[in-house]
Simulated assay, not measured.
Amino acid sequence: MGRKPLTDAQTQAVDDRISATMRQLARTNPEWQAKSRDDRVMAASQQAMADIQAEAARKVENTQRQILKPAATEARIAELTASREKLAAALQVLQDNPPPADDGTKKSKRAIKDWALDIASFEKLIAQIDATLPCPTDAAPDSAAGDAASWVQRGINIASIPKG
């Protein structure tokens, strides 16, 4: 009814699938040998159909994941870029303000040490983000607006992008 008949190759593929399923069921089902030939063929056909449906569902799920993963990656890149900008602004504030005056007390020495550690920490964080994210000059002008180029095409190592 509106469907084309199966080709010989398709018929053979169905037969092969049912035969393989029958062998698998014979290995795993202890009651298999007690069934009649017709019952075994019917059970194998039903199992093969269920397996094919499960495979189709997995393919759909995998395709959905492949579509969503780049979007999630782009979001993580945007978050890292925003974090980098905030860190750079905070670093600039620290660098624009001189360290506390050293009056010889432990408190002032600690404040100077903390100031220096803050600057070094911010510089390391920014360097790590810069190493992870693509260089803005490497990207095409329209890529900042979200072009079709994937993170792979822009050379981003996804494993190095921390999850939020």
Rank of each mutant, 00 (worst) to 15 (best):
M1K: 04
K4D: 02
P5K: 03
P5M: 09
L6Q: 06
T7N: 04
D8P: 01
A9E: 07
A9R: 04
T11Y: 04
Q12C: 06
V14T: 02
I18P: 00
S19C: 02
A20D: 12
M22E: 15
Q24R: 14
L25P: 04
L25S: 03
L25W: 08
A26N: 03
E31K: 15
E31Q: 13
E31I: 09
W32M: 07
Q33R: 14
K35E: 12
K35T: 05
R37Q: 13
V41Q: 08
S45A: 03
M49E: 08
M49R: 06
A50V: 00
A50M: 05
Q53T: 01
A54Y: 00
E55G: 03
A57I: 00
N62S: 05
T63K: 07
Q64P: 00
R65K: 15
I67N: 04
K69F: 03
A71D: 03
A72K: 06
E74Q: 13
A75C: 01
A75E: 03
R76W: 10
I77N: 05
I77G: 03
A78F: 01
E79N: 14
E79M: 12
L80P: 09
T81D: 11
T81Y: 10
A82F: 08
R84K: 13
R84H: 11
R84G: 05
E85C: 06
E85V: 12
E85Q: 13
K86H: 13
K86C: 08
L87G: 06
A88K: 08
A88V: 05
A90F: 12
A90Q: 14
A90D: 15
P100T: 14
A101S: 08
A101Q: 06
D103S: 07
D103F: 07
K107Y: 06
K107T: 09
S108Q: 04
K109P: 02
K109D: 00
R110E: 10
A111E: 02
L117A: 10
L117E: 13
I119L: 15
E123T: 08
L125T: 06
L125C: 14
Q128C: 11
I129F: 14
D130I: 12
T132A: 15
C135F: 08
T137A: 14
T137K: 12
D138E: 15
D142L: 01
D142I: 00
S143H: 07
G146Q: 00
A148F: 01
S150V: 10
Q153M: 07
G155E: 09
N157Y: 05
I158F: 01
I158T: 01
I158N: 02
A159F: 04
A159T: 04
K163L: 13
K163S: 10
G164I: 09
